[in-house]
């Protein structure tokens, strides 16, 4: 096999893994949209906030330290302890659940029955509020996130594949972090599907997604279900924040990963968990292969951001509801 062909395969594998990371972000959007019809603009910022909170808890940082010091003239920054990664993740989840409760209690409970555009605008406000709150609580400096995830290319894969394409082929490069992310995403998706299929709360969630008025009439508490859904979206956001934050450190540009999820949603549909996964994989592979075959050699590179949207638009033209979205039927 020629080295060029093998490098194409390498790009494809890495595209699949990048797609998994995009899908992780898209999953959070799907969960909330499916259950409440809200396009949650704040999903990217939730990933940032989750990762900020996690690093803050792990390093024993005092939340709002800057504000406290400025107000009271103190010089406190740290509690003086470190929390192990698993404990910190559990505590962060508690924070995300509290956030979900507050969002429901103070924002969306008061907006029941409003137009979708109003709900969307509310999530824009929520995004900016959460970003400011994250800054105020934990500061804007870049934080190293070390929860024990492996980094770097897999030497084992590289060694056993080196030479397959002659001296010009250096073996497949596969990032260990991407492999872990793929595994985690698979576990997350299977867990979410099992939860929604086989638990009482999951069935209630699906009932609300199908018809919330009918669900209400059989005694399902919308309030509870929406808190549950926002909590699950918080969990997904935290996982996405950990995976992306491990690559770049936890910093405010993490919120922009939401931009990577939009073409995935356009392609996979806003209401399908498998759609988010398949959409993510198609976008990841499509943009990476386009960059490898056309973008870098002929167009000067940096084509991935716009090509993902072009790909999504092409799918939209032929299937507006996305690959796995529910068919839109308007009866007149």
């Amino acid at each position: 096999m020629s080295a060029d062909f093998l490098y194409g395969i390498e790009v494809l594998i890495n595209g699949l893994m990048a797609g998994v990371l995009y899908a992780l972000v898209a999953l959070g959007f799907v969960l909330i949209y499916k259950a409440s019809g809200i396009f949650n603009y704040a999903q990217g910022v939730m990933a940032l906030f989750g990762a900020l909170t996690l690093t803050g808890i792990m390093s024993g940082q005092v939340p709002f330290a800057h504000l406290i010091n400025a107000t009271f003239g103190t010089h406190i920054h740290n509690f003086g302890w470190n929390v192990p990664a698993l404990g910190a993740i559990a505590l962060t989840l508690v924070v995300m659940v509290c956030f979900a409760w507050m969002v429901q209690k103070f924002v969306f409970r008061h907006l029941v029955g409003q137009e979708p555009i109003i709900l969307f605008m509310a999530t824009i406000g929520l995004a900016y509020f959460l970003e400011g709150m994250g800054d105020l609580m934990w500061g804007s400096d870049i934080k190293k996130l070390d929860v024990g995830l492996p980094q770097g290319g897999s030497r084992w894969v590289e060694d056993i594949t080196a030479g397959l394409g002659g001296d010009d082929f250096y073996g497949f490069f596969i990032d260990k972090l991407d492999m872990v992310a793929t595994l985690v995403a698979a576990i997350l998706v299977i867990s979410l599907v099992m939860f929604s299929q086989y638990t009482k709360q999951g069935r209630a969630m699906r009932a609300v997604a199908d018809d919330h008025q009918a669900a209400l009439s059989v005694g399902i508490s919308l309030n509870y279900i929406w808190i549950l859904v926002w909590s699950l979206a918080g969990l997904v956001a935290l996982v996405a924040g950990i995976m992306w934050g491990a690559k770049s450190g936890v910093q405010f540009s993490l919120s922009l990963i939401a931009l990577k999820a939009l073409p995935v949603l356009m392609l996979g549909g806003f209401t399908s968990i498998p759609g988010a996964i398949v959409g993510g994989l198609i976008i990841g592979v499509g943009e990476k292969l386009f960059e490898y075959l056309i973008g870098a050699p002929f167009l000067g590179g940096a084509t991935e951001n716009w090509f993902a949207y072009v790909l999504a638009l092409i799918f939209l033209v032929f299937r507006p509801q996305g690959l796995f979205g529910e068919k839109i039927i308007e009866r007149v």
């Binding site: 490098y7 390498e10 890495n14 990048a18 770049s248 540009s253 973008g295 590179g301 991935e304």
Partner: peptide
Amino acid sequence: AVDHPGQEQKSQWL
């Protein structure tokens, strides 16, 4: 070239 913000650079480094 790396597009803004530069969170994803796998293609360039490959």
